[in-house]
Simulated assay, not measured.
Amino acid sequence: MIESFFKAASDFLVDNRAEIVLKTWEQFYISMLALLLGIIVAVPLGIVLSKTKKVAKIVMAITSVLQTLPSLAILALMIPILGVGKLPAIVALFIYTLLPILNNTFIGMQSVNKDLKNAGTSMGMTKFQSIYLIEFPLAIPVIMAGIRLSAVYAISWATLASYIGAGGLGDFIFNGLNLYQPEFIIGGAVLVTILALIVDGLLSKVEKWATPKGLRIER
């Protein structure tokens, strides 16, 4: 049983080498572009919301509602608006990456010690300088945690993008389901997991590099 499983897995890897590279790139491209858009929107928005708590409650409530919608339903809703392919998949994944990044940015900015902010103000710093030089650097570990979580979400959910013709490793999984070929299902799932682990590991290096030295936790 185990021997036949490994043989089927090795045959899958050998027989589909070129397609594996292409599908892995599509999965990476779709999810990382959605993540990049999420960072561009959610980080500045989270910083602004940390200064306006009343508005923050409304925005957080809206993004939380969007997060509860099934990912497949959002993909389906994109079809009448943007058609099929990579664009609607990227937009749908972008929506899903927003909440963790936005929430962690807000929490990270709020958790900065008030004494440090007051010290910056007493030194003559403007609000922008305080954010740029004190609050944001100190909030980076929390913000990066949200980004890493969103990255794993995006890579996992990008598998469903196959349903709307966006490609990716989901093609292997759904082809395996349709053709009753377990090696395609297992191979696709394992490749998605490996890709998510690699990206999370790379982002952990970025987090360590971006975090001020005094706040770094050696692992």
Results as ranks from 00 to 15, higher is better:
residue 116 L to K: 11
residue 117 K to R: 12
residue 117 K to G: 04
residue 117 K to E: 11
residue 117 K to Q: 09
residue 118 N to S: 05
residue 118 N to P: 00
residue 118 N to R: 13
residue 118 N to M: 04
residue 119 A to E: 02
residue 119 A to D: 05
residue 120 G to P: 05
residue 120 G to S: 10
residue 121 T to A: 15
residue 121 T to I: 01
residue 121 T to W: 15
residue 121 T to H: 14
residue 122 S to D: 15
residue 122 S to Y: 06
residue 122 S to E: 03
residue 123 M to N: 10
residue 124 G to E: 10
residue 124 G to P: 03
residue 125 M to N: 01
residue 125 M to A: 02
residue 125 M to G: 00
residue 126 T to A: 07
residue 126 T to Y: 12
residue 126 T to N: 03
residue 127 K to D: 11
residue 127 K to H: 06
residue 128 F to Y: 13
residue 129 Q to G: 03
residue 129 Q to C: 00
residue 129 Q to W: 09
residue 129 Q to A: 12
residue 130 S to P: 05
residue 130 S to F: 01
residue 131 I to A: 06
residue 131 I to F: 11
residue 131 I to K: 01
residue 132 Y to A: 02
residue 133 L to I: 01
residue 133 L to S: 15
residue 134 I to D: 13
residue 135 E to G: 09
residue 135 E to R: 08
residue 136 F to Y: 14
residue 136 F to R: 05
residue 137 P to N: 10
residue 137 P to T: 01
residue 137 P to C: 02
residue 138 L to F: 12
residue 138 L to T: 15
residue 138 L to C: 13
residue 138 L to N: 15
residue 139 A to T: 09
residue 139 A to L: 06
residue 140 I to C: 15
residue 140 I to A: 14
residue 140 I to G: 10
residue 141 P to A: 03
residue 141 P to D: 11
residue 141 P to Q: 04
residue 142 V to L: 12
residue 142 V to R: 04
residue 142 V to I: 15
residue 142 V to C: 12
residue 142 V to Q: 14
residue 143 I to K: 01
residue 143 I to A: 13
residue 143 I to Q: 05
residue 144 M to P: 13
residue 144 M to Y: 06
residue 144 M to K: 05
residue 145 A to M: 05
residue 145 A to W: 01
residue 145 A to P: 01
residue 146 G to D: 11
residue 146 G to T: 07
residue 146 G to L: 14
residue 147 I to E: 08
residue 147 I to L: 06
residue 147 I to C: 04
residue 147 I to R: 02
residue 148 R to F: 02
residue 148 R to P: 00
residue 149 L to N: 10
residue 151 A to G: 13
residue 151 A to I: 10
residue 151 A to M: 13
residue 151 A to T: 07
residue 151 A to P: 05
residue 152 V to C: 10
residue 152 V to T: 13
residue 152 V to E: 08
residue 152 V to K: 07
residue 153 Y to G: 07
residue 153 Y to C: 05
residue 153 Y to S: 14
residue 153 Y to D: 04
residue 153 Y to F: 12
residue 154 A to S: 14
residue 154 A to F: 02
residue 154 A to W: 06
residue 155 I to H: 02
residue 155 I to C: 08
residue 155 I to V: 11
residue 156 S to T: 13
residue 156 S to N: 09
residue 156 S to H: 00
residue 156 S to C: 04
residue 157 W to E: 14
residue 158 A to W: 04
residue 158 A to D: 09
residue 158 A to V: 06
residue 158 A to T: 08
residue 158 A to P: 07
residue 158 A to M: 03
residue 158 A to R: 02
residue 159 T to R: 06
residue 159 T to H: 07
residue 160 L to T: 09
residue 160 L to F: 15
residue 160 L to C: 03
residue 160 L to H: 06
residue 161 A to N: 09
residue 161 A to Y: 05
residue 162 S to K: 01
residue 162 S to D: 10
residue 162 S to C: 04
residue 162 S to Q: 03
residue 162 S to E: 01
residue 162 S to N: 08
residue 163 Y to L: 14
residue 163 Y to S: 11
residue 163 Y to M: 13
residue 163 Y to V: 13
residue 163 Y to Q: 10
residue 163 Y to W: 08
residue 164 I to R: 00
residue 164 I to H: 00
residue 164 I to A: 00
residue 165 G to W: 15
residue 165 G to E: 09
residue 165 G to P: 14
residue 166 A to L: 03
residue 167 G to V: 14
residue 167 G to H: 05
residue 167 G to E: 06
